[in-house]
Design a protein around this nucleic acid. Sequence first.
RNA 1: GCGAGAAUGGCGGAAUUGGUAGACGCGCAGGAUUUAGGAUCCUGUCCUUAAUCGGGGUGGGGGUUCGAGUCCCCCUUCUCGCACCA
Length: 829
Amino acid sequence: MAVTETQTKYRYDFAEIESRWQKTWSETELFRAPERPDPKRGKFYLLVMFIYPSGDIHMGHFRNYIVGDAVARRQMMNGKDVLHPLGWDAFGLPAERAAIARKLNPADWTRENIELSRETLQKVGISFDWSREVVTCQPDYYRWSQWLFLRLFEKGLAYRKNGLVNWCPGCLTVLANEQVVDGKCERCDSEVEKKELEQWYFKITDYADRLIDSLDNLPGWPENVKTMQREWIGRSYGAEVEFEVDSCGLKIPVFTTRLDTIYGVTFMALAPESEIVKTLTMTAKKREEVEAYRKQALLKRDIERGGEGEEKTGVDTGVCAINPYNGEKVPIWVADYVLAHYGSGAVMGVPANDTRDLAFVEKYGLPVIQILKRADGAETKYGEVIPIAESVTINSGDFSDLDSAVAIERMAKRAEKEGFGKLATQFKLRDWLISRQRYWGTPIPIIHCPDCGLVADENLPVILPNVTEYAPKGRSPLADVPEFVNVSCPKCGGKAKRDTDTMDTFMCSAWYHLRYLDPKNDGAAFDSAKANAWLPIDKYIGGITHATGHLMYFRFMTKFLHDLGLVDVDEPASELFNHGMVADSSGKVMSKSRGNVVSPIELMEKRGVDVTRLAMYFTAPSEREVLWSEAAVTGVEKFLLNKVYQLTDFYDSTAGELKHYFKQSELDSAGWTLYLSLNQKIKRATDDFDRLQFNTVISAMMELQRDLERSQTTSVQLKNKVVFSLTQILAPLAPHLAEEIWSQLGHTDSVFKSRWPEHDEGAMQGDLITVAVQINGKLRAEVRIAPDASAEDALNAARSHERVQAHIQGRRIVKEIYIPGRILNIVVK
RNA sequence: GCGAGAAUGGCGGAAUUGGUAGACGCGCAGGAUUUAGGAUCCUGUCCUUAAUCGGGGUGGGGGUUCGAGUCCCCCUUCUCGCACCA
């Protein structure tokens, strides 16, 4: 039986209370957001990262959604129009893999999973506006993902490219860079291989500057996330300079951030994958050596080539490059420490001021030329990188004896004048590889026509066909569906073939925040006016794990839609909040692969939703990691059942209309003390709520309840006010119980339609306050003085205190400090 | 290696700008009530001390200050991110 028996006169039948209120909320459409917010009320768009349906809700989800729920309900009580939607990130590899393992159709498996998870979340009482639910694997959603793809294609931002890509031999598909962690597939842990394939990319690099620069306009985003994004985008300012090859006249561009070191170049190094290597003229013998080296280098895993400890290897091509500044010839090597995808895949080797280049020349006996000294004259070592601001050029021809910054500027000017180079910017960020050779995803709406080339299929949606064989085999399962593949070209009507890859799941989540704003629209992805009315997202809540993946794509897509004129905002979310992870009691993050996932359901059924919620809130502030343990439940359960549930005992329905503010003259002394406490607690709870620090909100309410219980005051009006405030402040955290009490207090409307209590600034401190007295910084006494006492009065009070006297007797007072209302310190010698 | 963050009782954690360290809760101890209780209520609970006298105490060491958990420097450990990006 879902009843917790206590020694009290009430039976807390939580199951009955919870289901009754959930039903009422649903029937009264309490959480239904208006199509457009009322400007008079103000809006609050609260977005929580949506769910990947790969199993039922676990403690991690639970925490994510109850944190969002508390914020949403708090904002409702702030009088705002609140939009709090949820949907399902239903396409993708894990769903497909789970379905294969269970020999189920991914569509069926996903649908069942969604049903189950939705039901659980409804039992948790999360205030979602379910009328806006979106499911990304349904045609009414993915047709607009396809539509977006075509808009990117139109603008040249979706393109095909042949190149070496990350290939996961476990999932048998390509992966984006973000999906490769330490050289392994983030999903299945297989060692990621390199494969040459023609794939679809989104040109996110076109937005690199904006993605970095507008981070400065996001004060509501945590610094660590912004830093991670800046580093991931990795912008470097420098110059691009061409070196001519002596044997064939080919010009090789190199990017450098230190143009001021160019007189110190003693070799050039090319990445093994570089196209330039293939076109270089060299002797047959050298060609053979180079080819052998390349083959072997390409076999190496990235980790073996990377890592600072790894030994540098290379092979001399036998040809030379000419330094455009001094005409010196330097040998061209092929070396696998050079990355093909960064800059031009070619590096000018300056061993004097680069650790890696020095390691290379030391191995192969190449020379070192010193070209920098420290501005302060301190010694420098070979290989040491001296920051631009601290270095001066030497041995650099016309550019000697210049501050590095000046040298760079003048050298770049000369390069530009003579046409062999210019200032340039480089990014680490690479274009977003979006094609996947898998079944369970959004089909790419492109037709390959032998005559017209790549043709957009505007006849959307391109429906994902049903297939019986989903198992990956290295090419998309869609390629084996002739009726899907064979189509006529929309342009010329001739025979053509459909693209058989599907899109990366991150595409679905890159724009879902906009679909919520107009989820039923079947004529457009969303209506701009409706979207603009709710944007930007006021608070976006999710885990830190998406710092460089989803959050980058989500910002990119918003900027793109802004450029199309479809949304006013350039950034999707003005505030981002990362809640902490939930780990098991030994500190391991809960995950299905570890098998340590704890479900909240059992606990909810045993002790009630509100108790379970409060236990999670009370354990730690929202941003911190939680080591979940059921031991946390005891305290809050006692509080809710024995104290909060009995609050109506302190309520007197005959006291007349609720009074919010009291004057000291209206209350007895115990009443005034209680009133002071009430206002302090309201202020604390309100501030802590804004910081999502619910643990201290709860402790403030525990204190307030105790003050109420123990108060000797005879003012029933004040007690009523305390009961009301306590119920309201707890409402976003324990919504069912609060709603129940609220109705017992005689309300017919929801507690969430009531206004959050405001503290009475005038009643924050009593007529006398306690001030600590220190002698030489050590606490010796406490004195009771008026809050507005002058420093002189305060000091007099302190000096006449017995304890203080004992400590200052026979000593000389050197200094006296009084910080009004806080502390008093007497310095004696 | 580089960057960011963290370290507070037996435990989870409090302490917005430097101002009474350990709120609140768990656990533990003692007591009350009870046929009994793993229920409820009360009291105590950082260490030291006979003590509500005093002394010490926020990972370790130094500094600034009347005053440091909070600011600065060095070190240790842990977490996260990046990891040959020229």
